[in-house]
Amino acid sequence: MRELLEYLAQSLVDDPDAVRVDEFTEDDGTVVLELAVGDDDYGKVIGRNGRTAKALRAVVKAAAVHEDRRVLIDIVD
């Protein structure tokens, strides 16, 4: 999931090297992925009306279903 989110985010931004995904696991087993991108790239991973962020969540969630996990994606700055 982490690798997938990183790959997808890198394909959307001007500065792929600035993409960072930190992974935590909460007590209930939920995986939290914190996505950070270059200062000027937040618009690219969020998109108009948040559409791109929503799409990222939908695809990574499908990967989580395959791994039988729950996942939350936080876009952090």
């Binding site: 959307l12 695809v59 499908a62």
Partner: peptide
Amino acid sequence: LIGRHGQTIDAVQHLAGRAVLQ
């Protein structure tokens, strides 16, 4: 891959479109 009401495949399609543009 398709997802409920095609949500997942539409999400993949959106991301692929953005990735091509980028």
